[in-house]
Design a protein around this nucleic acid. Structure first.
Lengths: 137, 137
DNA sequence: AGCTAAGTTACGAAATTCGTAATCGTCAAG
DNA sequence: CTTGACGATTACGAATTTCGTAACTTAGCT
């Protein structure tokens, strides 16, 4: 993870479909080097995933979840990450323990997710915030 | 945005580098159709961006920001989205108005961002949660 | 200087994307 | 029922990108 890696990542974050050749030009190296480094960052887990961000007209929300003190939050989060419509699951510091970032078809969909969360034995509280608008960095 | 679009998006969310040909096979259509639809979703803004998610060993955090009642939150958010190390800016419902999702090199970096946020005239409160772990949906 | 390991470059082959023309399907007007 | 028109889909050759691999640097060490 040197400066070159970081510059490559910056470009990929803006547009993950930028060809290696173009990235190479931009950072002043060869296609092969960019390829090697992206591959390595991929294997090392520095790059987690190539993905798309969408604005589907769907309703996005943060569902903050509190769990009982004796609970393995890691397990719970992994399970929740499997749910349809869940984009991220974060284990966080603060009042609640887990934050779900969800992207549902409508408010009913959000509500179903909240219900689903509350149905988990380990969950003792939820607090939901609708994401009204989003800007990408 | 029909069922086919949604299935294509689902695949791209998992891996945005899946070739059109492979997506086509999976959803039972041709490469050209997948290409047309992805292009259209791109133009329509349904797809906002092709990007990478990273796990850089950096510190991620949610900085929840409250702003004064007479403030145009949209403007503030746009400005904050320009800051280095800011991944998303969300305008949310609830106690605070804006949530920054940031990815800084270390806790010092997070702290600098909090300071930077607090220095904005419009900002009246902040509350930060470290993201201790993350699972992708 | 000589050796080694990691990283970079070079280059032909394979795969993917792209441009575009032909085809298909649906629907409404005649 | 036929025709025309429009949007979506398919087909296919050309351009571009990715990939595999071997040769080549570079830096560190003895």
């Amino acid at each position: 993870m040197d400066e070159l890696d970081r510059r490559i990542l910056d470009i990929l974050r803006r547009d993950a479909r930028t060809p290696y050749t173009e990235i190479a030009d931009e950072v002043g190296t060869s296609e092969g080097t960019v390829r090697n480094r992206v591959e390595r960052m991929n294997e090392d887990g520095v790059i987690e995933r190539f993905t798309v961000t969408t604005r589907t007209g769907n309703v996005k929300a943060m569902i903050e979840v509190g769990v009982a003190v004796d609970v393995e939050t890691g397990e719970v989060s992994e399970r929740m990450a499997e749910w349809e419509e869940v984009d991220f699951v974060w284990m966080v510091s603060g009042e609640q323990d887990i934050v779900l970032v969800v992207d549902a078809a409508d408010t009913r969909g959000v509500n179903e997710l909240i219900t689903q969360a509350r149905e988990q034995d380990e969950v003792v509280s939820t607090k939901t915030r609708l994401i009204l608008d989003e800007h990408l960095g």
